[in-house]
Design a protein around this nucleic acid. Structure first.
Lengths: 253, 253
DNA sequence: AAGTGGTCTAGACCACAAC
DNA sequence: TTGTGGTCTAGACCACTTT
């Protein structure tokens, strides 16, 4: 049998349930303080290590968080977005139709060499320069996704000079370069654990998964214009897609 | 700052890197034995607890596993499937075209009451009986996904009597009930952590995320025939979708 | 009997925050 | 100064496997 410390043991389980019940019973909200480790250790007549192990579970799963010297506190409950994918529209365009306060932040810009795999996906030479933008997406001020946008320099020369008052990549592609509205030609989705960068930028717990989406955008059948990678917090983002009658015909045999 | 025991500390980090390097350097394969906790504790001149903490990380992330009384061993490396979604074809039909040894196991069958949410999704009364099948999907003998299939009894009466020599739900729907090939009308995808059942059935590590897909299948525009929920190991399954020219027209504005 | 991992106790020291 | 969480040490006992 495969086991390890990550599994919840009887004593820890009891403490975990107590804390969950404590939050519920006392109707604690985000930021409210929980009993200290020493208090819990005394109460349950166990060593502080056992209490810490239990609290670690709740912390890693995002239920609570700690601050050194201050204590443990209740985390905010996630308000997941149900995002309706439309490969003819950009994310911001879909989100804009909702009522929730959606924001975008351009975090960094750089230039890299495409390399083999990226070159293949964008259908450009491996040694072509590619602009890389890192974009943070926020809802109600809380970051929920970090996006990497890869833009081929041959089709979008001097892209970095168009980044003042950044709103969306699509706007620049259309307004500044005169391309038609990009559309998504390929989409892949996977589930993975957060990297150190994810945890830092999205201020997320350790044991919260990431929904990773890779998309290749085209401006016409033969011209790729962007490789877009979205890493979204699993608790804050769900992907949805509906197949209309038209699409069912297109999809079907 | 939010921190907790889950984070990797300097001493643990050193041990983790050592183990990773040890596996690489010695070209260890699945099932090969690693140094014992006591040996590592002596070697690094730290307490066994520190070693255990480091090994826990590697274990939870699926790099190694332990057996009580025997030791720590190297885990098998995942061979992810890149699954091309086609909402006109069933999973087994798409998989069948590949060369890898794909298998299906019917784990359990039961009858439940639809309830509010399931009733709404299947467009049936909340008190209607629904057949629930649990199906395990395996590749090369290794389980990679657990599926829940919800089938409305009004449209598929006595479904449980058609489960001998089970292969696929679609086959029964078409061959035994005479329906046309079901197609996927709605698809939602999210990322979540495994439940206890997932960990048990898929024999997976604790800190491995699940890619969860919910699909509603129709046999015609107004008739739902199945609600299908797939929970796939994040390290073994990736979802992909390509948009053909026809589809782009259907999708676009 | 010896070795292994799984769990827990008891206590130390640190950095930080609040009083 | 006191209380808090973060880390680590030292050692115990257990269940299990191997020799």
């Amino acid at each position: 049998m495969s086991t390890h410390t990550g599994l919840i043991n009887p004593k820890q389980f009891e403490i975990i349930n107590y804390i969950k019940g404590y939050i519920k019973k006392n109707k604690l909200n985000e930021g409210d303080k929980l009993p200290s480790e020493n208090k819990l250790a005394d109460q349950f007549e166990v060593n502080r290590n056992v209490v810490r192990s239990a609290l670690s579970h709740l912390s890693a799963q995002g239920h609570i968080y700690s601050e050194k010297g201050r204590g443990f506190f209740v985390s905010a409950k996630p308000k997941p977005i149900l995002f309706d994918h439309d490969n003819g529209l950009g994310f911001s365009e879909v989100m804009g139709t909702g009522t929730r306060n959606y924001q975008v932040q351009l975090i960094s810009k750089s230039v890299i060499s495409a390399g083999q795999s990226l070159g293949k996906m964008l259908n450009i030479p491996a040694d072509e320069k590619v602009y890389l933008l890192k974009i943070l997406r926020l809802l109600e001020g809380e970051p929920f996704a970090i996006c990497h946008s890869y833009l081929p320099s041959s089709r979008l020369p001097d892209f970095d000079k168009h980044l003042d008052n950044f709103t969306t990549v699509n706007r620049i592609i259309m307004e500044d370069y005169g391309f038609p509205h990009p559309y998504c030609g390929n989409l892949s989705i996977e589930s993975c654990m957060p990297t150190a960068e994810d945890i830092d930028l999205l201020k997320m717990p350790l044991q919260m998964p990431i929904l990773k989406q890779n998309e290749i955008f085209y401006v016409d059948q033969d011209t790729t214009i962007e490789y877009f990678c979205v890493r979204a917090r699993g608790d804050r983002f769900k992907f949805r897609m509906s197949f209309t009658e038209d699409m069912q015909e297109a999809f079907g045999d």
